[in-house]
Nucleic acid binder design. Structure first.
Lengths: 148, 148
DNA sequence: GCATATATGTCAACATGGCTGACTTAAAAT
DNA sequence: ATTTTAAGTCAGCCATGTTGACATATATGC
């Protein structure tokens, strides 16, 4: 428990500081990250990942759209949906924000060795609620292709 | 990065829900947890772990003291200090809150196996800032014994 | 085709837990 | 005697979560 607290504290500290320069917070980072990983994701799928209310998401998402980091386009199969994607600017910001975290992980992996990384992934996956484990590490299937 | 997000999200969800019944939040949990792990810790050491301002800490700490979960007593060597300890009530709440997390970790450990756990600990430790790694897993040395 | 359900968004109000800045008190250190 | 340190307080701000109520467009089902 202690390990996880410290790790999360240090894992988020530097991106948080960078985000502050844009007037953004950690919530913006999460949205950018998951939209980047799942181009074309729907609002409701994003809500399901973040587990926040749509009112909370709306605040940060509309800011990101307004400032040109994310675009919305209607779904072709279901035109109620607004599929989300990063703009070039969004991709750039994502890259910048994650760089620190990637480097931090890369260092930790290098020091610990491949076998330890394997164990790390196993345990961390085991901490996640069983229902959500299958979707980790894979992009959310596009609703476009999912049918209804 | 994704793994860590999901794991932390699910790791904190249930304690958060329990805390809400007491009118407490995650910040209270952190204080209770670290005071429980480090009986007699000083306010400034606690601030150093949590990395928040004393004004932020004060809000939750004084609530916990007022409601009888934590006691303060002056340091014997340095009487400016207020050493923090859980009351019986505090211990009980800590136990309750952490039970979920301990069980979750125990399940993950059991499924992953001892070797994976070893790797998990190595990698997570590597994620933590180097400067703080030594103190993880050990109680903070009491200032009483540390001298000044 | 009409009724209902769904995807998304919006307004308003509130709570939690961060923050800064300014200032106080008591005790320790020099 | 002066300065530094440990702790606390007051006030106000900001980010990000919440609930509840309601609006709009589109899809779906009978």
């Amino acid at each position: 428990m202690e390990l996880l607290f410290y790790a999360y504290r240090d894992f988020t500290a530097e991106p948080d500081a960078m985000l502050a320069k844009y007037g953004f917070g950690r919530a913006h980072h999460r949205v950018i990250y998951f939209v980047g990983r799942n181009p074309g994701i729907t609002v409701s799928d994003l809500l399901g990942i973040l587990r926040i209310t749509k009112q909370s998401l709306s605040r940060v998402l509309s800011q990101l759209v307004r400032e040109g980091f994310i675009t919305q386009r209607p779904g072709s199969r279901d035109r109620r949906q607004r599929l989300l994607e990063l703009t070039n600017r969004g991709v750039e910001l994502e890259r910048q924000l994650s760089q620190n975290q990637r480097e931090r992980l890369a260092r930790a992996y290098r020091q610990a060795g491949a076998e330890a990384v394997e164990g790390f992934r196993k345990v961390v996956t085991g901490i996640i609620n069983e229902i959500d484990r299958p979707k980790v590490g894979r992009p959310i299937p596009l609703r476009e292709a999912r049918g209804r």
